[in-house]
Design a protein around this nucleic acid. Structure first.
Lengths: 178, 178
DNA sequence: AAAGTATCGGAGCACTGCTCCGGTTGTCAA
DNA sequence: TTGACAACCGGAGCAGTGCTCCGATACTTT
């Protein structure tokens, strides 16, 4: 027995992820899991074994983006305030790739039992560094925390999901005073 | 035939509203309608005849508060900026009385087909007056619209629903710069 | 090639929103 | 008071959901 999963299992895993990406893009994060399984030509049981919860499936889709955002924060250069604002815009925009995603991201930010939480913590830490730099610089108010600023970004994403106002406009309003 | 509804219809209408208030407080705005009917000792058909949609039921519960907020805006006195901020806080807090309510309020703000929209328009107009006064005063930036500022309030309500950060704190952050 | 186990698939449960229509009952006129 | 009739009630039923459980399948390794 090797520790590698069986070939068919791996194939199905990847298949589910790619079908789920389509389905979430089409119907939002509460797309029917049964429908995803059907579209992948698999049984519902198979989907649930690979991804016991909806969060686990989302996590597989989002980890890549979370990592990208973390990298972006770490390699960011230039004026500290602008770098922070730009990065938060990226976070907010990333939270609108699927309708309903901001909900999940907000949950991951706060709820430790969320499957996305782990992926999110690293990103939050990277953001905190960006924030800290801007605060030392004096270009961002010293009394603001990383969680607060990320919450604002998630809130902005949420609002812009269901309103014609654009992410950048809302973010610039919300961050104007910090 | 009078135009008044039958006595039993009126009784059931009021009963449903009061049971729904409990249920929404307990389980959020997506509480089971069947369960509400059951708790009221009525059939599900009866509930749906009185309130064809969930929004219609919510509307019955929220109109009172919408009217109160409108009144508050109209009779408000004192420093224009503080009056606006205080009022928006009231709006945000009102949007957290049931879990998931901010979602509905945000929809009502934008979506004209929402059953809550009508009740919401009057409130928005009242808020616009408050905003306008603060802008003439110079204490609030001139480029901000009423919808934007109400969207921010709804977003704040949404965030504070699922985070330990409090409404007042978030609102003061979001409005600091306007 | 055969054994054995990881993997699969879907029937089934409890729930949801919502519709439809036969039976009941309040109400107004006679 | 009594009848007639429309307004009203109630729940069976449909199509969908998330999730579990276990007999059948098929991949791997010996």
């Amino acid at each position: 027995m090797t520790d590698r999963p069986r070939a068919d299992a791996r194939r199905n895993h990847d298949l589910i992820v790619s079908v789920a990406a389509e389905a979430f893009a089409e119907h939002g994060t509460d797309a029917s899991l049964r429908e995803i399984a059907r579209r992948a030509g698999l049984g519902i049981g198979t989907l649930y074994r690979h991804f016991p919860t909806r969060d686990a499936l989302l996590e597989a889709l989002l980890r890549q983006n979370f990592d990208r955002l973390r990298g972006l924060a770490e390699t960011s250069t230039g004026a500290p305030r602008e770098a922070l604002v730009r990065w938060l815009g990226e976070v907010a925009r990333g939270s609108t790739t699927y309708r309903g995603l901001s909900e999940q991201v907000m949950a991951a930010l706060v709820d430790e039992s969320s499957e996305l939480h782990a992926s999110c913590v690293a990103m939050r830490a990277a953001g905190a560094v960006l924030l800290d730099r801007a605060q030392r610089d004096g270009s961002v108010a010293a009394d603001v925390t990383a969680v607060e600023v990320l919450s604002l970004a998630a809130g902005v994403a949420w609002v812009s999901e269901r309103s014609p106002i654009e992410v950048d406009r809302l973010l610039s309003l919300a961050l104007r005073g910090i």
